[in-house]
Design a protein around this nucleic acid. Sequence first.
DNA 1: GAGTCGACGTTATACGTAAAACTTGGAGGC
DNA 2: GCCTCCAAGTTTTACGTATAACGTCGACTC
Lengths: 338, 338
Amino acid sequence: MARGSTRPTSRDVAQAAGVSQAAVSLVLGDKWRGRVSAATAERVREAARDLGYRPNLAARNLRLGRTRTVLLVVPALTNEFFAGVYTGAARVAARHGFGVVLYPSPAGIGPARDPFASAQAALDGVIASSMAADALTEIRGDQLPLVMLDSDPAGSLGAATVNLDITDGVRQIADHLLAQGHRSFLHLAADVPSWTFEVRARELADRVTTTPGTSVRTAHSALSIEAALTATTTALTAPGPHPTALVCDDDKLAAGAYKAIRRLGLRIPDDISVTGLDDLALATALEPELTTVRLDAETVGERGMQALLAVLDGRTPDAGDIPVTLVVRGSTAPPNAS
Amino acid sequence: MARGSTRPTSRDVAQAAGVSQAAVSLVLGDKWRGRVSAATAERVREAARDLGYRPNLAARNLRLGRTRTVLLVVPALTNEFFAGVYTGAARVAARHGFGVVLYPSPAGIGPARDPFASAQAALDGVIASSMAADALTEIRGDQLPLVMLDSDPAGSLGAATVNLDITDGVRQIADHLLAQGHRSFLHLAADVPSWTFEVRARELADRVTTTPGTSVRTAHSALSIEAALTATTTALTAPGPHPTALVCDDDKLAAGAYKAIRRLGLRIPDDISVTGLDDLALATALEPELTTVRLDAETVGERGMQALLAVLDGRTPDAGDIPVTLVVRGSTAPPNAS
DNA sequence: GAGTCGACGTTATACGTAAAACTTGGAGGC
DNA sequence: GCCTCCAAGTTTTACGTATAACGTCGACTC
């Protein structure tokens, strides 16, 4: 019962149960079999419950030299996708007694140039999105186990990678539009230097150009609705043949494109088909609902965490990309033969 | 230079600089003035830099009995609003050398019924949204300093509260619609037991009924686009006078209402005006753009963290609700005199 | 020249836990 | 009767840090 206000320690529990502190540690750590009698173990557990004992994690971490805490580095949390990644990672982590601490991009948090100062927790490993590349150089400084999300497998030296099968997603979009008869494409591309966007551009070009008589133009935009609105307006009012299909790098860009198209007096999908990528809540809020590719963010988080656990365990992480699904909705239709 | 692979400790730094470990602690803790000569201090700092020394946080936490880490309890991170709250809280926290750990609802994470097991970090305090009420009973178990967000100031015994001025927001919506000439209202209410939603219902009723000849009907819905779609359809196809204004408890509900209204062949705002509350990215993605009340999520997070820092410091947190702003867009217009 | 004081350190200790190393009191074998 | 062995613990130590308490040396006071 110690000093009233301070939290009980394992020593307090020991005293209450009439045993030594070591015995408490053994019992509560579930290592008592063959070392402590069942009756005593029960007495210890009871005392711990009565006192409301909670182990001091700082002490445990110090003793064990590990924290069972990992860092998740993402570009921004207000991005629904990365919120899902966090949820998935945290779920798997909790199942293994781990915690996940967030480091949502230096820009979002402020002047803390040091992820380990910002996240007070000491860390056992790091999961990082390739879109938060600015933070990565700092992180490689410490030699922590690292898992990269949606990063070039060839380029991320040594680090394990967990990737969505974006290539397949883009292929499905391209095939869907080609099958509908589209031949003239506009690609609304995110001007963010990340592998995941490079893949989109490469695969779209590859896939479309295998069909004769096709063309792909590209417009670049920052990752916001407003920027996409501007970029789309510019691209659609440019001289030359009008595209019948607009392939956007993600759903947010598609939302901006919707606004641009509407302001130009065009209709979706009658005048132009639009596709996205992500399948955020946004996709079904739009009118017409957006044809897009569903990326399972939570699975990305889960697989990322599993991969990190494997690395920490000295095992080899599971290979294989995470499958994605084309979701056909009202924003795509065969082009008007006008 | 220790054992090669292990991280350097303050003792390693001490040895490299030719001083005692205590001196290293004094210098690096910036408490050396009058205790260590400037030359020695510089030598210590240099040695620390050379070795790439980082203090072991577990040891520091154990020694100091505090962790400079707080817990943020939110219903779900995929809610853009709470992502903003986190960002704001983390920014202020970083500025004061604190970290923020998330606990996004028991349901989202899994079977971890214990926030302090899930968040491996030991905690100095807690910031909790009243919408995550299920987690609160567990938390009150430990006597940690607590700040409540958007919670009944009268009902949260002792805990400091940080609230948005929702009352004013609803008043502004009501006044805006009344000024446009609306008299028949439908309130699409979230059926979540939380103070923040109770306030909306109360204030809307209060405000509207002070004008003669008005009526307010209420429809209840879960907090999802689909549920809102169903609830709105039911309410609008019910017998009785048709409302000319639909006041939704948040933007997501409004998005569902948009779909319902469109499917019924009605137009916004010609046949019915719609308002939201939150001002998410969603609001401007909708067509027409949504008239709503902007809630500054990041300010909520900042103020919450500031309040917690004040409590930890023995000071009284700043009082005063956080102001909100009505943002008038295309979804509201005077009713048709048909 | 004894006492005082400040500058510049050092030594020692505690935080709470986990686990290795040690103790003790029988039971059982031969 | 002595040795071995096991169950059921206990004692001790280490993790890395921050800081209280203690030294030591020279300069300065009177």
